[in-house]
Amino acid sequence: MKVSATFDGGLRRYSGVGDGGQSESQPAVFEVANGGTVQNVIIGTPAGDGIHCLGTCTLRNVWWEDVGEDAATFKGTSATQTMTIDGGGARHANDKVFQHNGPGTMVIRNFQVADFGKLYRSCGNCSSQYRRTVVIQNVTVTAPGKTIAGINSNYGDTATLSGVTIVGDANKKISICDRYEGNAAGDEPVKLGTGADGTYCHYSPSDLTYR
Results as ranks from 00 to 15, higher is better:
residue 76 G to V: 01
residue 203 Y to I: 07
residue 73 T to G: 11
residue 123 C to G: 05
residue 138 N to E: 13
residue 32 V to P: 01
residue 146 K to W: 05
residue 94 N to Q: 14
residue 169 D to G: 06
residue 97 V to F: 08
residue 155 Y to Q: 10
residue 152 N to Y: 05
residue 69 E to Y: 09
residue 33 A to E: 12
residue 192 L to M: 14
residue 55 G to W: 00
residue 119 L to Q: 00
residue 158 T to Q: 04
residue 166 I to D: 01
residue 1 M to Y: 07
residue 59 L to V: 03
residue 71 A to F: 08
residue 118 K to Y: 09
residue 17 V to G: 08
residue 211 R to N: 13
residue 66 D to H: 13
residue 24 E to C: 07
residue 66 D to C: 10
residue 71 A to N: 09
residue 23 S to G: 12
residue 27 P to N: 11
residue 106 M to C: 07
residue 49 D to Y: 12
residue 27 P to E: 05
residue 173 K to D: 09
residue 180 Y to S: 03
residue 89 G to E: 01
residue 111 F to C: 04
residue 51 I to K: 00
residue 67 V to E: 03
residue 118 K to N: 12
residue 46 P to I: 11
residue 103 P to S: 03
residue 44 G to I: 12
residue 97 V to R: 03
residue 33 A to Y: 01
residue 33 A to V: 14
residue 150 G to D: 00
residue 195 G to I: 15
residue 179 R to G: 02
residue 152 N to R: 00
residue 110 N to I: 00
residue 160 T to F: 04
residue 192 L to F: 13
residue 1 M to Q: 07
residue 66 D to T: 10
residue 49 D to Q: 09
residue 28 A to G: 12
residue 195 G to M: 13
residue 187 D to L: 11
residue 185 A to H: 15
residue 176 I to P: 03
residue 151 I to Q: 04
residue 161 L to F: 09
residue 91 R to M: 14
residue 132 R to L: 04
residue 113 V to N: 02
residue 185 A to L: 13
residue 38 V to M: 02
residue 47 A to N: 02
residue 156 G to F: 15
residue 59 L to P: 00
residue 39 Q to V: 01
residue 15 S to W: 04
residue 194 T to K: 14
residue 74 F to G: 00
residue 7 F to S: 06
residue 104 G to V: 06
residue 125 N to E: 12
residue 202 H to M: 15
residue 128 S to Y: 00
residue 75 K to A: 05
residue 16 G to P: 04
residue 102 G to A: 13
